[in-house]
């Protein structure tokens, strides 16, 4: 028997539960089901077979592409964390007035008012062989010939990722930093800690939940992306998202679903591991 208090609590949670059930759980179940189906060239038929998974795990391309996906995620994570932490640190501890903090924080978000595809594509003319970057470097005499690796390379892919997703790191880290009791920092200084020691032994541990939330954002976004990799690598590199999008464009939905399920499991696994390190509930 439910107590009436329980009942009210359940009723309050019901709308969200229902939305999640319809728009999150049900589609995922559908994807899992379809991943066992079979496909001909232009139709899919219900079945229960492991062909899609067998092909996926049997192909060296899969491992290569998953590896590339992890590589992008890891490098992007390292850069966004470095930049995001620095920006948040500056905002939280160097900017004195709260008004100024708000202004600067909003300034960070301004580029994000435009579509992220536009922000990504605008790198292309900038980095191109005859682009602004190469022309500037050449006019300065730094290089004699245009740098080819600026565009359509891993460099440009990661550059775009870092540009697109750093804010997702800044926000949660800034948020946690703002909650740090400044008396703790003063106490550290009073006890003779250097600035670096304070940073490492006081601020970083207290910011961990924010870092973790930012990490989850960045890792999931990068691992699920396909359009950035396609545009910035000139279609020459592949990550898991591109495998899925290729399958979909060829109407191989079951195979796309199987890849999506494997990707989903991988991402969940990564997040599970991350959550072992930090209890983010403390933050929420």
């Amino acid at each position: 028997m439910f107590k009436s208090r329980d009942l009210i609590a359940y009723a309050q949670a019901a709308p969200l539960g229902l939305v999640l059930l319809c728009f999150l759980v049900a589609p995922i179940i559908m994807i899992v089901i379809v991943s066992f189906w079979g496909a001909t060239e232009f139709s899919i038929y219900p079945a229960f077979q492991f062909d899609n998974y067998a092909f996926l795990f049997g192909s060296p391309v899969t491992y290569k592409v998953f590896l590339a996906t992890f590589k992008y995620a890891f490098i992007t994570w390292a850069f966004t964390l470095g930049i995001g932490f620095t920006v948040a640190y500056f905002l939280a501890f160097y900017v004195r007035t709260q008004a100024m903090q708000t202004v600067l924080f909003l300034l960070c978000t301004i580029p994000f008012l435009t579509s992220n595809i536009i922000r990504m594509i605008s790198w292309i003319p900038f980095l191109g062989r005859n682009g602004i970057a190469n022309q500037t470097l050449m006019s300065w005499g730094v290089i004699d010939a245009p740098l080819e690796w600026l565009l359509y390379s891993d460099f440009s892919v990661i550059l775009a990722f870092v540009h697109l997703y750093t804010l997702f790191m800044v926000v949660p880290i800034f948020n946690t930093m703002m909650r740090i009791d400044t008396s703790l920092i003063e106490a550290a200084y009073d006890n003779g800690a250097t600035a670096l020691q304070t940073l490492w032994h006081v601020i970083v541990p207290l910011t961990k939940p924010g870092i973790m939330i930012g990490t989850i954002f960045v890792v999931t976004l990068v691992m699920g992306d396909f359009i950035t990799v396609r545009f910035m690598s000139g279609s020459q590199k592949a990550n898991v998202g591109r495998l899925i999008s290729n399958d979909i464009s060829l109407l191989q939905y079951p195979s796309a679903a199987a890849t999506a399920v494997v990707l989903l499991c991988t991402v969940l696994l990564v997040i599970a591991v991350l959550l072992r390190f930090v209890n983010i509930r403390k933050e929420l």
Binding site: G128, G131, L151, S233, G234
Partner: peptide, 17 residues
């Protein structure tokens, strides 16, 4: 690069890439 859409092919060629 490889191109997939019409405008990509135009841009690759026009920019001298």
């Amino acid at each position: 690069a490889f191109w997939k859409s019409f405008d990509e092919s135009v841009n690759l060629m026009a920019s001298g890439e």
